[in-house]
């Protein structure tokens, strides 16, 4: 997704002189394509993210549209107060493009796993939070983020992530994206995912085909503002909603959906899967970590089956 996003930024930069790209000395073989074409709109701020975020705010206050490229926790958790006081309070047009969301840099270890970032960014007023699942979603996310005059956080995975959507999205990027799912139907369970872990959702749906459970699948490319109407609709059409994210179960996608459900008089049961208020403490690839922490396709399918075994399958 990273490569797709950078080429989108270059595309926008061609027609919009306000666009600037900042990096905290990351993006070898990534940001050059921008830096070479627009050297006077590219700033390498060095390995100094906190200053970079405040500088981005200053540039945005002067009328620039500033994209900041960095990794996981560095432009987010590390810079929490710069984002709060300098960017968000001033509603500065700064977009954080962050690679390494979740476990995507698997064996690099917990320092390089962003697993509290969605929660941290979501709590900041004015901040929009995006978690595209594949390059198709990423392109639409970039388009919306470009149009929005204010702070945004775009959580990506790696350089080249597989295309999951086979065709262009037919719904606005701010809405839940049904994946091979007919939204008008009723379900036993609906899986909602944030980011590239949509691929585990796709596999889980396949695994559950052999059961008598009717399962829907949605990707959530924009966590804030949340598609509240979409969630409400789903909450009345299914027995169970299961959220899947490479993130703490607190504060991320699952937390955001819980907040919507809590104001409804009747709604589906919500099962949140992700890191159970813990860090990644074992070594392994992204795939291994998904299995280890119980958010791969088999665990998702198992959690859904387990619920119905325990509660019994009743019609809605």
């Amino acid at each position: 997704m990273r490569d797709c996003v950078i080429s989108e930024i270059v595309k926008y930069a061609r027609k919009d002189k306000r666009i600037m790209l900042l990096t905290g000395d990351l993006g070898y073989n990534v940001t050059e394509i921008f830096a070479e074409q627009y050297p006077d709109r590219y700033i390498n701020c060095g390995i100094a993210e906190e200053n970079m975020i405040s500088v981005a705010a200053g540039l945005a206050m002067e009328g620039n549209k500033v994209f900041v490229y960095s990794l996981g926790n560095f432009p987010t958790l590390r810079c929490m107060e710069q984002l709060r006081n300098d960017v968000c309070y001033h509603q500065a047009d700064v977009k954080i493009i962050s690679v390494g969301g979740g476990f995507s840099y698997g064996s690099l270890g917990m320092s390089h796993h962003a697993t509290e970032d969605i929660g941290a960014m979501r709590i900041l007023p004015y901040m929009q939070v995006y978690t595209p699942a594949d390059p198709v979603e990423a392109e639409s996310v970039l388009n919306e983020a470009y149009e929005y005059q204010g702070p945004g956080y775009i959580r990506l995975a790696r350089g080249r992530d597989p295309y999951l959507h086979k065709e262009q999205l037919y719904k606005s990027i701010g809405l839940l994206q049904p994946f091979e799912t007919n939204e008008t139907e009723r379900f036993d369970a609906v899986i909602i995912t944030a980011g590239t872990i949509l691929e585990e959702g796709i596999k889980a749906v396949k695994l559950l085909r052999e059961t008598n459970l009717k399962v829907g699948l949605f990707s959530c490319p924009r966590i804030k503002p949340m598609d509240i109407d979409g969630i409400r609709e789903i909450a009345l059409k299914t027995r169970v909603i299961i959220t899947v994210e490479e993130h703490n179960v607190i504060g991320g996608l699952g937390g955001a959906i819980a907040e919507v459900l809590s104001s409804l008089p009747e709604h589906a049961v919500l099962l949140r899967t992700g890191l159970e208020d813990s860090y990644t403490e074992v070594v392994g690839s992204g795939d291994f970590l998904r299995r280890y922490y119980g958010i791969d396709s088999e665990h998702i399918a198992w959690r859904i089956q387990e619920y119905f075994q325990f509660m019994g399958k009743k019609e809605l």
Partner: peptide
């Protein structure tokens, strides 16, 4: 109000 912020934003303005 939080120290070490204003000068950094100012630096961005000077860069621009």
């Amino acid at each position: 109000g939080s120290l070490g912020h204003g000068v950094c934003v100012a630096c961005g303005m000077a860069l621009d």
